[in-house]
Design a protein around this nucleic acid. Structure first.
Lengths: 216, 216
DNA sequence: AACATTTTTTAGACGAGTCTAAATTTTTTA
DNA sequence: TAAAAAATTTAGACTCGTCTAAAAAATGTT
């Protein structure tokens, strides 16, 4: 098996790969809160194990083997988050840290049974898709609220920012997954938006609109 | 918080303390499958942290602080075992290794909610008592089947040996927790016993009888 | 194209936890 | 009670993952 540190590097590289094709040493260092030197060291080890494609100074990408491991960790993370929210009644802004630990529990049989126990959920509490036991899942095709036109309606389906602060804000505004909203105005001055929910009109900043995702 | 290795040492010392007042370096080394030298090193660290009482060459005992940590890990271990058996339908001989990993998940809030979710079980799948959130529990007062007299009846309530091999044997013989048995004969030659269950008569060795526990 | 800046890698060190071999202390036994 | 045996500790070394400082490579700028 792989060490905890290795798993965290692979997961980080996986996530960063969505914005760029090759991930840089510095990006990984920032995302893992560590030094570029430590990252360089670890990249050599991961390359030796054939988990990443690595050429000095050129950034890295995951090999098939590396991606498999990363996806498996993400599967575990998201299933545990679902468990914490649906079975233990935690709020969606409370579960990330716990799932960061739980995702490293190794047993595959355990996670498959957990999946079954919860009746095979397809999305975690933040709307992110949960890979199945073969690692298959459709990467979600969500758009930010900023891309919605005036008078268009849509359903909140995910978030780009997973920070507790952002999630708590959304919770307070009742801008949660599954809610239908209609954009009723865009303020040109700062690109903030007014959206209508079942209850009320809410004024959200450009920043919030950009981190709030809707189904296509 | 404490490291994984520290937690495992404390747990080991706790368990070994039941048979002896002061635990020896070698006992710990054997139980953790490591060298006596490694144990000596670690004992110094644990003593520095005031988690054990340690005088060179004299063996160790847990301080109050050390015992608190050990009991908390045992609480987590047993609650996760209960979860694995009762919610995910694992067999009692399959859960130990998984729980060894899960017991190190740090969140107290998580374990308290898990406890509530399962409706505060008082014993794990092997009959061992589960400490409550304050670390209180009655250490069980069970006796081995060897102490039962002929024609006496009793209820299987725990095991002394937790190995998968032993548990599988008991499962096959239907000698599981909660079952009522009556000792109907003791073979003097090898001290093996014949016990009557609901279904059949079972012949068990002295060794088995010694590792199978009954309620007082 | 040449210099300056940024990024990345290397060098050397450290702490945690482990090991083997040797030294020391305790316990056993003759 | 003194020698032998067993248990324990110390010494020195190793791996993993990290660090800072310095060197090297890539990139940006004039």
């Amino acid at each position: 098996m792989n060490t905890l540190a290795e798993e965290n590097y692979l997961k980080s590289i996986y996530h960063l790969s969505h914005s760029a094709d090759n991930v840089s040493t510095n990006q990984i260092a920032t995302s893992l809160n560590t030094s570029a030197a430590s990252v360089s060291d670890m990249l050599k080890k991961l390359a030796d194990k054939k988990l990443i494609n690595y050429a000095k100074y050129q950034g890295v990408s995951l090999t098939h083997a590396g991606e498999k491991i990363a996806v498996n960790i993400i599967r575990k993370h998201r299933l545990w988050e679902y468990f914490l929210v649906e079975k233990l009644n935690f709020k969606w802004d409370e579960v990330h840290e716990m799932a960061e630990e739980m995702e490293h529990i190794s047993s595959t049989e355990l996670i498959d049974r957990l999946d079954k126990f919860m009746d095979y959920p397809r999305r975690d509490p933040h709307g992110d898709p949960i890979p199945d036991s073969n690692g298959n899942f459709k990467k979600h095709q969500l758009k930010p609220v900023t891309s919605v036109k005036i008078n268009e309606s849509c359903v909140i389906s995910g978030v780009r920012d997973h920070s507790a602060a952002f999630l708590q804000y959304l919770e307070k505004q009742k801008l949660t997954i599954g809610r239908k909203i209609t954009v009723i105005d865009v303020i040109e001055y700062d690109n903030s938006m007014i959206v209508q929910t079942d209850d009320t009109k809410i004024h959200i900043s450009r920043d919030v609109a950009n981190n709030l995702l809707i189904a296509l």
